[in-house]
Amino acid sequence: MSSNPNIVFTGSDPSDETSLLDILDHVLNAGVIIRGNLVISLAGVDLIYVGLDVILTSVETAFRQMKAPALSPKSQS
């Protein structure tokens, strides 16, 4: 669609690397967060809050860190 070289359109096709980043950004950073005791923990780590803190660098790294017992969850608001 783009004929203006300074404007790029990215679709929602996960095979496109740029789109993939957009999709992961949305999945991990947009949307409703359920707060309080409805969120369960895994290995003593609150999934939602740890995810929000570390997810921007790498999804795989984030999940590895979620499992690491050394991480302490942030206090809930």
Partner: peptide, 18 residues
């Protein structure tokens, strides 16, 4: 309205309550 990944609830009763 999407939930943020991963949003995990204890069970369906908790989901209904929410």
């Amino acid at each position: 309205i999407p939930f943020r990944f991963p949003t995990i609830l204890e069970d369906q009763t908790k989901l209904r309550d929410y």
